[in-house]
């Protein structure tokens, strides 16, 4: 409850206005996509502008979705709906969702996932984590993005890697699983990673719990994001 006896629950107001904003940005994105497909860019400058417009709108959209999800998580209003899903479906969906960004950026996408690989998780939540990381990688990569999924030690591992400059040192140095809430609430950043970490941790099986891992290097030499789910 608020400290100054205000009758308004500010976080509620914020949440509902975030909800509205998210819907507006969704509409904006939809119109933007039809503009781009109706009048395709005629030169490079235009193409770059479209990409920027589209990228920034997608980013706002996914940040707003994250905000809402975190808000619900905090009040325990976020039910996790675990069921069996095929990884290829979930990952292809997110790649297709960002198809235009990848195409306008002339990026290469390496996709590596066994058609038969299936696992147990909440596909909405994991889908939005993958979407966020993907949007981020598209922003920072130079030429290529690699999306893959496999089983490692009885854990599902989803990897999104790029050939960009990689994650900054301070982000890599922190111990696993520790984007603290103070940092996020300072407005500093890393909302996407905080979100990914929380969502991962909502997935539990026996004594194990999901987590994320950041690294630089890998086959492409850029940032490597890994999500592990029990």
């Amino acid at each position: 409850m608020s400290k100054n006896d205000s009758p308004i629950d500010f976080s509620m107001v914020l949440a509902s206005s975030v909800h509205d904003m998210k819907n507006s940005v969704g509409m904006l994105l939809a119109s933007l996509e039809s503009v781009i497909s109706d009048t395709p860019p005629t030169n490079d400058v235009q193409a770059r502008r479209f990409t920027t417009l589209h990228y920034e709108a997608s980013r706002i959209n996914s940040e707003l979705i994250q905000l809402l999800t975190i808000y619900r998580m905090q009040d325990n209003h976020l039910p996790v709906h675990i069921d069996e899903h095929y990884l290829v479906d979930v990952l292809e969906d997110q790649v297709a969702r960002n198809h235009m960004l990848i195409e306008t950026g002339a990026l290469q996408l390496q996709f590596n996932c066994d058609d038969e690989l299936r696992w147990y998780f909440d596909s909405d939540l994991i889908g939005s984590v993958v979407h966020n990381i993907l949007v981020n990688s598209i922003r920072y990569t130079k030429t290529t993005i690699a999306v893959s999924a496999e089983l490692v030690d009885d854990l599902l591992c989803i990897t999104i890697a790029d050939d960009g400059p990689g994650y900054p040192d301070d982000m890599l140095r922190r111990p696993a699983g520790l984007i603290d809430e103070g940092e996020v609430s300072k407005g500093e950043t890393h909302l996407g990673l905080y979100f990914a970490e929380r969502i991962a941790a909502l997935h539990k099986q026996h004594n194990r719990e999901g987590y994320i891992q950041l690294a630089n290097g890998g086959d492409l030499g850029g940032g490597v994001f890994k999500l592990f789910l029990p």
Binding site: G26, E33, A96, H99, D124
Partner: peptide, 28 residues
């Protein structure tokens, strides 16, 4: 245009065969 969740929940009793989120792409 909503992320599917809200709507999915309110409509559990008569669920569509699938949901798609706007913006749609041909590939999706």
């Amino acid at each position: 245009a909503e992320s599917s969740r809200n709507i999915v929940m309110s409509t559990y009793d008569c669920a569509p065969d699938d949901y798609l989120m706007k913006p749609l792409t041909t590939k999706m």
